[in-house]
Amino acid sequence: MSNPVLPGFTADPHLVVYGDTYWLYPTTDGFDDWSGTRFRAYSSTDLTRWTDHGVILDLATDITWADAYAWAPAAVERDGRYYLYFCAERAIGVAVADSPAGPFRDALGAPLIAADAYPDQMIDPMVFVDDDGRPYLYWGQGASYQVPLHDDMVSFDPARVRVHTPEGYNEASFVIKRDGVYYLMWSENDTRSADYRVAYATSGHPLGPWGARRDVVLAKDEAQGILGTGHHSVVRAPGSDDDWFIAYHRFAIPGGDGTHRETAVDRLHFTGDGAIARVTPTR
């Protein structure tokens, strides 16, 4: 495995496992003001050789309520259908398909979460499905909004929305569960900053309350020229008990910046007491 794992400029990678296959859903990057309009999907069985499945959702042709700012896709499977949560025009939408490669179609014909639904920015969705099959939606820049999703995967009760603002939180909530402990991870600082990084807290419930910020998970390595490491996702390798990987973006090497980023994948380890060890970013 070598980094970057995808060609060109990509960011906000959502790495997920379906069966024995890894799927990556990134933001298409390289545009001023993050003004991309399309999402693509990539698959691999070894995290090394990736198949590009082309455009799976195009705002211009597939979405009636937004034209630009296609960011931060997140995918999940439920009862044989595939749901893609995404940002567009600083709102959050959801699309559905019968295949992880799409094509995806707008599930609602309107945003799932409008741009002005709550304070701060309504971006960076993520869905976590617990062991009992209950799904939870996370999103938000400036604050982490969290709510149980209904079984239809495209609605929720606004009265049940919780908001958390962990120390250092900026955006990109991501939740995993290991040995009965829930880990909430997020990105700190601005994606245009070389100091963009990932930190975490833990809880005994998928909606918190979350304990104090425990540590940084992933940060820049200036000696290697690796900067701006953040907006990540985490998966356990198929068939493994405790083999984990983290996907994230960083400034493209060489000469990248906050709108010219690339996707990397590295190993994620836990210590004996359940803490997340600091990730070593690689080239």
Rank of each mutant, 00 (worst) to 15 (best):
G168I: 10
P148E: 12
H164T: 10
G140W: 03
M122L: 06
Y138H: 04
A117L: 06
S144C: 15
P125T: 14
Y145Q: 04
I113T: 06
M153P: 07
M122F: 08
H164I: 00
G133D: 03
M122N: 14
I113D: 06
I113K: 03
R162L: 15
P119Q: 09
L149S: 04
A159K: 10
Q146D: 04
Y145T: 05
H164G: 09
Y169F: 15
M122D: 13
D130H: 01
E167W: 11
R162W: 11
V129K: 12
A115S: 14
T165A: 15
Y136L: 01
A159H: 09
E167L: 12
P158F: 08
A117Q: 14
V163Y: 06
F156P: 10
G133V: 01
E167H: 11
V154I: 12
G140N: 02
R160I: 05
I123E: 12
N170G: 05
V127Y: 11
F156D: 10
D157Q: 06
D152F: 03
N170I: 11
Y118E: 15
M122P: 09
Q141H: 10
E171T: 08
G142D: 02
A143I: 00
M153I: 11
D120G: 03
E171S: 09
Q141D: 12
G168P: 13
Q121A: 14
N170K: 14
V163R: 12
F128L: 08
H164A: 14
D152Y: 00
R160K: 14
D124T: 05
Y136N: 01
P135C: 02
A115L: 09
V147W: 05
P135V: 02
L137D: 08
A159G: 13
A114D: 15
D131K: 09
G140R: 01
M122I: 12
R162I: 11
P135N: 01
L149Y: 03
T165S: 15
P166S: 01
M126G: 10
V161L: 06
S144W: 01
A172K: 01
V129F: 06
P119K: 04
A172H: 07
Q146P: 05
V163P: 02
V161F: 07
D130Y: 02
R162V: 14
D116W: 06
W139L: 04
P166R: 02
A115K: 11
Y118M: 14
R162M: 14
L149P: 00
A172V: 03
P125N: 12
I123N: 10
Y118H: 12
V161H: 04
V161P: 03
T165P: 06
Y145C: 00
R162T: 15
N170C: 11
Y136V: 02
M122K: 04
D120Q: 13
V163F: 08
M153N: 09
P166W: 03
D116S: 11
A159C: 05
V127G: 10
D151F: 05
R134C: 00
